[in-house]
Design a protein around this nucleic acid. Structure first.
Lengths: 223, 223
DNA sequence: GCGAATTAGTCACCTTCTGCGACTAAAGTC
DNA sequence: GACTTTAGTCGCAGAAGGTGACTAATTCGC
């Protein structure tokens, strides 16, 4: 994928770029330059003086030509044998991009997460970890908005949440919670999509934190 | 701290070991072997074939002589210049140990998190990240129990939660939530501590998950 | 021994939150 | 114009959560 002789660093930076189509999550993979049947996550060996995050951003730039707004580190992965870079450890970053604006460069393709080609065990672990990270961050961070275009209908937003959470949501409850969080604001545009009543377009409204308090909840997920 | 000539790996594994006294969190630091005025997190350069987690566990063994039940990786840290190991990147692990059973070996000391000695920027970032991780994991994972001895009173448990959450909790609400989560079981022991009515001792009751469902909550923490 | 102080543990009330069905609104289809 | 489809809202019933007041069991001071 990249010249590996420049500086044999014993770690690499790998990027799990995620986008969402109508009802599927997709991950960007790069065609292996030597064995063109194989695919791998975009990765990069950090150059001297290049921070981890910068390396991740560069890897994304090579793949998409643009940078996602905000990449999040999801950990260092060391187990598993083979990795394209032959590095001992890979630091994985997660990036979210709206599907509309995400056209990969030559050699890169989106794969549905449900239908990935074979990957190295290490990279497969990264993809799984990325999926978990997205789910767990869902109600802590505005993840869904980073996967949607600038304006969107509330139905689209709800569908995105349903996709990310993996379950159906009740429309009225969803909108009530959304209102309480004060997270979106209406635009004065409407979109008519096929049949049915046109939907109002909304935009994400980043705001100072609200809801300062709330008690304990022992919603433990694992024993 | 450790022989660095054996194998110059460009990354190290650092451990943020956390314990909790009555009303303070504390972190284990190691006295620097060359400059005995300086302190650092316990760390280790992974040997060949040593996984990241094993390296972290070994580092803890050297420091405490025992292993915490479960270490969690909190990320790879690359920015900031100086690090004891002179490595480019450090992978940080978080371990929780009950204060009662945590007697450090010679050269290691617990420091209150509010009163840490100077650390390298990178290690300071690790400690801060560890604190954030603990808070965010609080209602996802039984963090508090890993900081308490096997049996404890509900008041102790509540105090631990108050310490970790950084705010007071109402006794009745706390216990109601605890009951609903089915997370502790009473022992038949009671402990009389100074004045006041003796408290019943409880133990942690790991269990299959409950509460399978719940709607969305936009409890966003940042804009 | 006895009341005050202290800590443990529970109850009941009221408010807020949440699941959910039923409703109205505005478009297209035939 | 009746029917279908999607958007958007209302309001109730029940669950969850915040809080003060209560009972219980012990030590302390006298």
């Amino acid at each position: 994928m990249r010249d590996r002789s420049s500086r044999t660093s014993s770690f690499s930076v790998d990027v799990v770029l995620v986008t969402a189509t109508r009802n599927e999550l997709a991950v960007l993979l790069a065609r292996n330059s030597s064995d063109r049947e194989r695919w791998s996550l975009p990765w990069r060996s950090p150059q001297a003086g290049e921070s981890l995050e910068i390396a991740a951003i560069r890897a994304v730039q090579e793949a998409l030509g643009e940078v996602p707004n905000g990449m999040e580190q999801i950990g260092a992965f060391g187990d598993g044998k083979r990795h394209p870079s032959e590095s001992d450890v890979s630091v994985a970053y997660l990036g979210l991009v709206p599907h509309e604006t995400a056209s990969p460069r030559a050699g890169y393709t989106w794969f549905q997460v449900a239908d990935l080609p074979p990957l190295s065990p290490r990279q497969r672990a990264m993809v799984e970890s990325a999926a978990k990270t997205i789910q767990s961050r869902l109600d802590q961070a505005p993840v869904a908005f980073r996967l949607l275009p600038n304006t969107f209908t509330l139905s689209e937003l709800q569908q995105m949440y349903e996709l990310l959470m993996g379950k159906r949501l009740h429309k009225a409850s969803f909108r009530r919670a959304l209102q309480a969080a004060w997270l979106v604001e209406p635009t004065d545009e409407w979109r008519s999509e096929g049949r049915g009543r046109p939907a109002q377009l909304f935009r994400y409204l980043p705001k100072k934190k609200r809801r300062p308090h709330r008690g304990v909840r022992f919603d433990f997920l694992y024993p």
